[in-house]
Simulated scan of single mutants.
Amino acid sequence: MSNNSTQSFEDMMKELETIVQKLDNESVSLEESLNLYQRGMKLSATCDETLKDAEKKVNELMSDDQNDTNDNLEKVDSDDE
């Protein structure tokens, strides 16, 4: 199991899928189940944070783009006068 900071989002999601599959397997010991669950929770939290950061960046880019569009429209309007 790799360190979260060196794993891509996609790799973390694949690992989460693998953990869920292992936990669904009834032959996993209680100790291993607990370890897998703990790892899964850490991965889930990291993925959630990554998604929230990405959403924030997208919103900022959309806001910046909207501001640029408004600035350009204002400039065109003032040039028409």
Rank of each mutant, 00 (worst) to 15 (best):
L23A: 00
T46H: 10
K56N: 11
Q7K: 12
D53C: 07
R39V: 02
Q21Y: 04
V20F: 10
D24S: 03
E10Y: 07
L36N: 02
L16K: 11
I19F: 01
L36T: 03
D53Q: 15
C47K: 09
C47G: 03
I19Q: 01
E15T: 05
D48G: 09
Q38A: 15
E31D: 13
A45S: 13
G40N: 11
T18C: 01
T46L: 00
L51F: 08
C47W: 00
L51G: 06
S29V: 03
V20W: 09
D11N: 09
T46Q: 09
R39I: 05
D48K: 14
K42S: 15
T50W: 06
Q38V: 12
L30V: 10
K56Y: 07
G40M: 06
D11A: 14
E31F: 09
E31C: 01
A54H: 14
I19M: 03
E26A: 13
Y37Q: 15
T50G: 06
E26W: 05
A45V: 07
D53F: 05
M13W: 01
Y37P: 00
S27N: 13
S33E: 02
L23P: 01
R39L: 07
L34D: 09
I19E: 00
S29Q: 07
N35F: 08
E26G: 05
V20T: 11
D11L: 08
V20N: 14
E10G: 03
S29W: 04
S29Y: 03
L23K: 08
E32T: 10
K52F: 04
F9H: 10
S44Q: 15
E26V: 10
S8A: 02
E32F: 02
E31G: 02
A54M: 13
D24R: 08
M12R: 12
A45E: 14
S29T: 15
V20R: 14
Y37E: 11
E15K: 01
T6R: 08
F9W: 02
S44K: 13
E15M: 02
S27Q: 11
E15N: 00
S33Q: 08
A54V: 09
I19P: 00
K56L: 12
L16F: 03
T50R: 15
N35M: 12
D53R: 15
L16Q: 08
A54G: 07
L16A: 04
V28Q: 12
T6M: 09
S8E: 05
D24K: 05
A54D: 12
E17Q: 11
K42V: 14
E32M: 09
E26K: 14
K14P: 00
E17V: 02
S29K: 06
E15S: 02
E49I: 08
Q7D: 12
L43G: 07
F9K: 11
E55G: 12
E49V: 04
S8P: 04
L34S: 09
S44P: 00
E32Q: 14
L51K: 12
A45R: 10
S33K: 11
L36C: 03
F9R: 11
